[in-house]
């Protein structure tokens, strides 16, 4: 398994760059993973990333994008729970990119 080094500590990631151990995740690792994805983290990005971590804690899966969109709409309102908003934040796919930054595995249902 490939390793990445953040703040002097090394962490295991899979072939696609997803963090192997959810428990390893820190804000610093999120910043590193975001940089790899060429995403500049704003408060709006953090809101989605934190939402995903809560979702995972509750259901033990990373949601498919339409499930994420619906759940975000429910929790944060329809202004944020739509494809346009989420794709603007994470252009290469909110489920894939935001999950990676949140330290979650690749979403189930990602074919």
């Amino acid at each position: 398994m490939p390793m990445v080094e953040v703040a002097g500590k090394s962490f295991e990631v899979d072939e696609e760059g997803y963090l192997t151990n959810l428990a390893d995740w820190t804000k610093e690792i999120a910043d590193y993973l975001a940089k790899e994805e060429k995403v500049e983290m704003s408060e709006s990005h953090w809101e989605v990333v934190n939402f995903l971590r809560e979702y995972y804690e509750e259901y033990q899966i990373a949601p498919a994008v339409r499930v994420l969109t619906k759940a975000v709409a429910k929790k944060l309102g329809p202004d944020k729970g739509n494809n346009k908003y989420l794709y603007e934040l994470f252009p290469y796919g909110p489920a894939k990119q935001a999950c990676k930054i949140a330290g979650l595995p690749k979403p189930t249902g990602c074919i």
Partner: peptide
């Protein structure tokens, strides 16, 4: 191992 029993509660969202 992962407690995937929690995931059955996500099915509604799917």
């Amino acid at each position: 191992v992962k407690d995937f029993s929690k995931t059955y509660r996500a099915l509604e969202g799917y």
